[in-house]
Simulated assay, not measured.
Amino acid sequence: MTAPERTGAVELRAEAVRYEIDGNTLLHGVDLTARPGETVGVVGPNGSGKTTLLRCVYGTLRPTAGRVVLDGVDAASLGVKERARRVAVVPQDASGTFGLTVREVVAMGRSPHKRFWEQDGPGDARRVAGALETVGVAALAARRFDELSGGERQRALVARALVQDPGLLALDEPTNHLDIRHQLDVLGLVQDLTATALLVLHDLNLAASFCDRLYVLDAGRVVASGPPGAVLTEELLAEVYGVRARIGAHPTTGAPHLVYLP
């Protein structure tokens, strides 16, 4: 895949973000920074608060305390459309797409840049076509989105985020349902964008290969952060994930490579 050019990468700061619901604290004062153009991964075991943090960043959840800052502006002060011009989301599951074609779903990414009565113009159509081509689903443009496989839907959602022209791309498990080739394609595309990217990932080898920095969450707290080589240690994997592993350097990329032990 060839990455389309992007401008205006956003700096993201999560400052002491706390989130509570029904008396349960899911995030305990999380601090996170993603500098303009960085690819930052959030990793951790199930239930550690990764998706909750991502939802606080893109605005479907409002932190109980602390704040999310985009280029020095408190995100809570931004309107829905203004925030959507800065942050695009690739969720695990898409809602509100029943009966729409793939082209129509991808074109939804242009809506933050339009007045509600505006129709798509030739420029929008070119952006949509280019994004479909970029993620490898141009041949599926006229298909109904809900008829696609999980991997095809995931790539279409990446295309929708691309046409939004975001300064920050927030992705929740973007490799879900993808075969190995498309996992590498999608993460390579994200890595090549000039936009800032914040990714929630389960696969630690993919996180080590494609992320500039990692934040490890455990029970709603950041327990480690930094470059993958500094963060992913055998001791951390034992403590946070409860697994034994050996970590070496990938023979081609030099990135940390994890081998799990029985």
Rank of each mutant, 00 (worst) to 15 (best):
Pro4His: 10
Ala9Asn: 06
Ala16Glu: 13
Val17Lys: 04
Tyr19Leu: 14
Tyr19Lys: 06
Asp22Lys: 11
Gly23Ile: 11
Asn24Gly: 05
His28Met: 04
Gly29Asn: 11
Val30Gly: 04
Arg35Gln: 13
Glu38Lys: 07
Val40Ala: 10
Gly41Phe: 00
Pro45Arg: 01
Pro45Glu: 03
Asn46Pro: 03
Leu53Ser: 02
Cys56Asp: 04
Tyr58Thr: 00
Tyr58Trp: 15
Thr60Ser: 15
Leu61Asp: 05
Ala65Tyr: 08
Arg67Asp: 02
Ala76Leu: 12
Val80Ala: 11
Lys81Pro: 09
Arg85Val: 08
Ala88Gly: 09
Val90Asp: 08
Gln92Asp: 13
Phe98Lys: 08
Phe98Asp: 13
Phe98Ile: 06
Val102Gln: 00
Glu104Pro: 06
Met108Ala: 06
Gly109Arg: 06
Gly109Ile: 06
Ser111Val: 15
Lys114Ser: 11
Phe116Leu: 15
Glu118Gln: 15
Glu118Cys: 13
Pro122Cys: 03
Ala125Thr: 11
Arg127Lys: 15
Thr134Met: 10
Thr134Trp: 06
Ala139Ile: 10
Ala139Thr: 14
Arg143Cys: 09
Arg143Val: 02
Arg144Ala: 00
Glu147Ile: 03
Glu152Met: 05
Arg153His: 14
Arg155Gly: 15
Leu157Asn: 05
Val158Lys: 08
Arg160Lys: 12
Pro166Thr: 02
Leu169Glu: 04
Leu171Ser: 02
Glu173Gln: 13
Pro174His: 11
Pro174Tyr: 04
Thr175Leu: 09
Arg181Asp: 07
Gln183Lys: 14
Gln183Asp: 09
Leu187Tyr: 10
Gly188Asp: 13
Asp192His: 08
Asp192Ala: 12
Asp192Val: 01
Leu193His: 10
Thr194Pro: 10
Ala197Val: 05
Ala197Asn: 07
Leu198Glu: 10
His202Arg: 14
His202Phe: 01
Ala207Lys: 04
Ser209Leu: 14
Asp212Leu: 00
Tyr215Asn: 12
Ala224Ser: 13
Ala224Arg: 08
Ser225Pro: 08
Leu237Val: 14
Glu239Asp: 15
Glu239Trp: 10
Val240Ser: 05
Tyr241Val: 15
Gly242Lys: 06
Gly248Tyr: 01
Ala249Trp: 02
Thr253Ile: 13
Gly254Ile: 02
Pro262Tyr: 06
